[in-house]
Simulated scan of single mutants.
Amino acid sequence: MQWNLRMKAAERGIWKSTEMRRLLAEAGVEISAGKMSQLWTGTPNIVRLDELDVICAILDCEPSDLLIREPNKVAERRPDRQQAASASSASPVVAPRFGNRRSEPPL
C-alpha cells in the first residue's frame, strides 16, 4: 500500500505536519509529534480507524484516497507457481495412524 496523506493534504492547502496535527487536535484526536511525523513523512505501519476517520473528515476524502493499492508489489511477493508445485511434490506423504499408539506411562 502506498500512503498518500501529504498529497491529499496539499490539495486542501495543508503544507505542514504541524498544521495537520493542529486540525486533528481541534477535531478531538491528539497525535504525538512522533506519530504525526511518521504519518506525514512515510507509510505508517499502523493507523487507527478512528484517526483515519478524522483524517478523512478533515481532508474531505475517502480512505481509498489515502491508501493506494500496489498490486505489482503483491505479485512480486507471491512464490512462482512452478516453485510451489515442486515444493509440494517434494514434501513427504502423511499417513494416518490407526489404533492405540500411545506409549505406556512410566512405572
Rank of each mutant, 00 (worst) to 15 (best):
V74Y: 07
E70V: 08
P44I: 07
R6N: 01
V54K: 10
T43K: 09
I31F: 01
R78F: 06
A25G: 01
N72C: 01
S37I: 02
C56P: 02
Q83C: 02
Q82T: 13
I68K: 15
L5G: 02
E19T: 15
L107I: 06
D65M: 07
I14P: 04
P71H: 11
S64W: 06
I55F: 03
E19G: 06
R12S: 12
D60G: 04
S91F: 03
S64I: 10
S37G: 05
S103P: 01
L67V: 15
V54D: 07
A84Q: 14
L49F: 14
T41F: 04
E19A: 13
R78A: 13
M7A: 14
S17K: 15
A25F: 11
T18Q: 06
G34F: 05
S88P: 00
S37C: 05
S103G: 13
G34W: 02
Q38W: 01
G28L: 01
S64V: 07
K35S: 03
D80N: 15
S37F: 08
W3D: 00
A9P: 02
R12Q: 14
A75L: 13
S88H: 10
T18G: 11
N100C: 07
D50K: 15
A87E: 13
P105F: 13
C56K: 11
S32W: 00
R101N: 11
R102M: 09
D80Y: 08
V54S: 03
R101G: 05
M20G: 03
V94L: 12
G42A: 10
M36A: 04
R22N: 12
R102P: 00
L24S: 08
E62P: 00
R78D: 02
A27T: 06
D50G: 03
N100Y: 11
L107H: 08
V74T: 13
A87F: 07
R78L: 15
K73A: 08
A27C: 02
L107R: 14
E26G: 01
V29A: 01
I14H: 03
W15Y: 15
A75G: 03
K73Y: 10
